[in-house]
Simulated assay, not measured.
Amino acid sequence: MLSNPPFGVEWKKVQKEVVDEHKLKGFDGRFGPGLPRVSDGSLLFLLHLISKMRPVGEGGSRIGIILNGSPLFTGGAGSGESEIRRYVLENDLLEAIVAMPNDMFFNTGIATYIWILSNHKSKEHKNKVQLINAAKMGESMRKSLGSKRKELKEASIDDITRLYGAFEENEISKIFDTTDFGYRRITVERPLQLSYYPHDSERVDALKEDKAFVKLDKALQDEILTALADIKEEKISDRELFAKKLDVKLTASQFKLIQKHISEHDDEAVLCRDKKGKLEANPDLRDNENIPLSESIESYFAREVKPHVPLAWIDEKKTDDKDGKVGIVGYEIPFNRHFYEYVAPRALEEIDAELDAVTSEIMKLLKEVHS
């Protein structure tokens, strides 16, 4: 099957039907793996074609579909796009992706890619994906046709076909395991450490102007402001001590409202703990790390995170819906990264010489103007 669906077309007009099929039919329908964002239906076309593949027992099928760059990487772990890529790769359906030259189409000059999928891979292709970078094989046309300024000559098409058939690596052909494109996104937490500044006028003014504070009973507002003014210390780096000094009966949300404006993170402050004695996380310092599926979470965390933030920990409640393990699995295919060629910057002397030449030319022109 061959397909060249429109690039980046939104599917809002059929959103209800597509969402219903996804929810009600699941994998018995076309869109079981997931749904992409409404603004780009490219991956819906891909799922539609996959649903039309003949079973392996009946000979199987091979698909060739032209897509733009978005389906390669759009959407983080757990997103609809990532889940679709996950389905394709974990079911070993992707055989190869070929990067085409720009300016190959009449109405757009964007980068395009041919995805080749198969459900009856040969033994040597099992659990492998070949990336072929044919982006530089295009030749300029004598006369442009709209945005189409380049074409692939027969010789270039033959070269691409041979690369695909040979299934070998060289400077424009690389072979990966399907799991090389997968990662596990973990949530890294850091402890809540706060210092409070009860006499900072800007902070107190911000508290007064907060809509949530304005809605409080006037008597409670006055009590809070008076209590802040009565605290002798300019800075308190201990939450429990601050609450004791404040000495106002507050709900948890009311105390957090004050804390929001009066405090800030301080690495030297006392660690905040909950009623069970466990460290509380600071949501403002929450971060994510994408760890390759081939690597242990523990070893990665010990090597890449702990040396820089010793008090950090992994939120083990964030688990993947499918395998139940810590971290959410995601898949992306960073095609250009695998074919990136480093270009060294020009020598500083060369740049200086060029600037001097340009400056001299400008001065010469200015003299001519004033003469």
Rank of each mutant, 00 (worst) to 15 (best):
D20C: 01
D210I: 00
L47N: 10
S118K: 13
P5W: 13
P334F: 01
I258S: 13
I236N: 05
G29H: 09
T108K: 09
Q254E: 10
D222A: 04
S263A: 13
A344L: 09
G8D: 06
V329K: 08
N282W: 06
P71A: 08
E17C: 03
A302N: 12
N282K: 03
Y342C: 00
A155R: 14
P283E: 06
K136V: 09
E90C: 00
M141D: 05
D205Y: 06
E21A: 09
D284G: 15
P292V: 05
K260T: 14
R273G: 00
K275Q: 14
T359D: 12
V14R: 10
L67K: 08
I236C: 10
Y331M: 11
G277V: 04
H265C: 04
G26M: 05
A353G: 12
E233K: 14
R142Q: 13
I84G: 10
E354Q: 14
N288D: 06
K364F: 08
E316F: 00
N282D: 15
L194V: 05
L285D: 03
D222L: 00
V369H: 09
V326R: 02
K232N: 15
P310I: 01
N170I: 05
K143H: 13
E81A: 08
F176P: 10
L293E: 07
Y342I: 01
G26V: 06
G330H: 03
P191I: 07
K244F: 07
S39G: 11
Q221C: 00
Y183H: 12
A353D: 10
A302L: 11
L44R: 05
F27D: 15
N102T: 14
R37G: 14
S173D: 06
S42W: 04
S70D: 15
K13I: 04
S360I: 04
E189H: 09
F213E: 00
P191H: 10
F167K: 09
T74V: 15
K260P: 09
D158R: 14
E139P: 00
S173L: 04
N170K: 07
D321N: 12
I84L: 07
L47V: 05
N127D: 11
I351M: 14
G59V: 06
I258W: 12
L366M: 14
E350Q: 10
K143L: 13
S173T: 08
T161W: 06
G60I: 02
G26R: 08
L250C: 05
P71N: 11
R149A: 07
E295A: 11
E240T: 10
I224V: 11
P101H: 05
V309W: 07
E264N: 06
